[in-house]
């Protein structure tokens, strides 16, 4: 099923490989944002099916983004998949409460990424 995803990451190279890989493997549409604030704007405007969110970002980190996303009734139900290079993560319960459906560690393979997102969204 065709999906529209929003990827939020301050690393442009990551954005490129995610966008290309997912598009190549699954044919899904991938929107990109280079930071939390831009991500909030894009999410409110585009209402994607899911958001792929980097945790460690300047200005607004992943958790701050999530709190803001959940505070907006339009975006609060959008499922979020965390992409993180750091395994030091907040408590699982907190992540669940903030609507995180899956945590994927970097580095990842585009093929696996599609499978993991698909499974998380189905759940």
């Amino acid at each position: 099923m065709h999906k529209r995803l929003l990827t939020i990451d301050d690393e442009e190279s990551i954005q490129i490989v995610i966008k290309f890989g997912i598009n190549m493997v699954a044919g899904w549409e991938v929107l990109s944002a280079s930071g939390g604030r831009m991500g909030i704007d894009t999410a409110q405007r585009e209402l994607p099916d899911a958001i792929l969110l980097d945790v460690m970002m300047p200005e607004m980190d992943g958790l701050a983004f999530l709190r803001q996303l959940r505070s907006n009734p339009h975006t609060r139900l959008i499922p979020v998949v965390l992409l993180t290079a750091n395994r030091y993560l907040p408590d699982k319960d907190l992540l669940t409460e903030l609507g995180v459906v899956e945590v994927i560690s970097k580095p990842f393979l585009p093929v696996n990424l599609v499978r993991q997102i698909d499974r998380a969204l189905l759940n």
């Binding site: 690393e11 190279s13 290079a85 585009p110």
Partner: peptide, 14 residues
């Protein structure tokens, strides 16, 4: 290391 590795790894896979 992980951040550049992610780009490198994914790019190579593609």
């Amino acid at each position: 290391l992980r951040t550049p590795l992610t780009s490198l790894h994914s790019a190579l896979k593609i």
